[in-house]
């Protein structure tokens, strides 16, 4: 039996059982939600998605399912660019590194543990529910700071017309991990339809364990996303010989927000002290010279 044929850790039945238990505990989980927190441990559970590039067949059923669930327009060709109405797609990497054929890469929100979009949002419109990063579109002001700050370049501001309830005009939009559907006991649309078992959904611990199991059974694979940006909410399995950072598909983790988070207050404090000192000095000098 290959690893692809083994029973999934989170099959539909076990997931629904967990979801029922989750629904019962929903008020508690909601109470545990920490607004503006950058930690990955808010709430009792951290949900994640597992994406196995080696198993992916590039059919983009995930892309269509996502659009269908949200009522977004489906065009003839797969849109290979994220947009306010295109939250996920799969494409081949532009180059394969040491591989002859570039592997498939899933492009969507990473649901980072240290979500920079959430940190920079000036109005706390970006929040987390059990690890799933979502935008409260009723609060978003459309400043696009999240668009500029996300290291993966995921959020997009909807400059065009509204598309139903899920992509109103003027606000930033991105994959929300189907958190509202998960609250209802469903799983993300992309995971639900994947025909190749390349996508799984469950707690992060389960997804990491599943990724490690797949890698242990196939030494030609490796895991991305365990530690980057506070640990991603999307765990990737790639073939060895392909490094998405080296190939420019994903950013350098060191370019993240964390190292510079204290830079702003320090710079602002220095400017404030400088301004106060200069104005005070001019005033004191003028007083000394009898200027007033």
């Amino acid at each position: 039996m290959t690893e692809r044929e083994s029973p999934p850790i989170t099959n539909r039945r076990t997931f629904l059982k967990a979801a029922a238990a989750l629904a019962a505990a929903l008020p508690l989980l909601k109470a545990k939600e920490v607004k503006g927190s950058t930690s990955s441990g808010e709430g009792g559970v951290r949900y994640s998605i597992l994406y196995d590039s080696a198993a992916c067949i590039g059919c983009n059923a995930c892309h269509v399912a996502c659009k269908t669930r949200r009522g977004f327009p489906i065009r003839g060709m797969v849109e290979r660019e994220l947009s306010p109405v295109n939250w996920v797609f799969v494409s081949r990497a532009p180059s394969g590194g040491q591989l002859q054929t570039p592997p498939f890469v899933r492009h969507s929100c990473m649901h980072c543990g240290d979500a920079m979009c959430q940190l920079v949002c000036p109005v706390e419109a970006i929040r987390k529910w059990n690890g799933l990063v979502y935008i409260d579109q009723s609060r978003c002001i459309g400043c696009a700071y999240c668009v500029e700050a996300c290291p993966y370049g995921v959020p997009r501001k909807n400059e065009g017309p509204s598309w139903g309830d899920w992509a109103p005009h003027g606000v930033s939009r991105k994959c929300d991990g189907c958190y509202a559907f998960v609250q209802e006991g469903k799983i993300p649309a992309c995971v639900e339809v994947c025909p190749a078992d390349a996508l799984r959904f469950g707690t992060r611990d389960e997804m990491v364990a599943e990724a490690q199991r797949r890698v242990s059974e196939n030494p030609n694979l490796w895991i991305y996303g365990l530690n980057e940006f506070g640990g991603l909410g999307v765990i990737y399995i790639f073939p060895k010989g392909f490094d998405p950072v080296r190939e420019g598909v994903f950013p350098e983790p060191s370019e993240g927000y964390r190292p510079s988070v204290s830079r702003g207050p320090i710079a602002l404090g220095l400017a404030a002290v400088g301004g106060l000192a200069l104005m005070g000095a001019v005033k004191a000098k003028a007083r000394g010279e009898g200027g007033e």
Binding site: G36, T38, L119, V120, C121, P122, V123, E124, A125, R139, C140, I141, G142, C143, A144, Y145, K157, N158, E159, H169, G170, V171, S172, V261
Partner: peptide, 18 residues
């Protein structure tokens, strides 16, 4: 802003780390 009418949200819902 995409939603200029919500500009006051920056005063009503401040986010100190931003």
């Amino acid at each position: 802003l995409g939603r200029p009418e919500r500009a006051f949200n920056t005063m009503l819902h401040p986010h100190p780390v931003s």
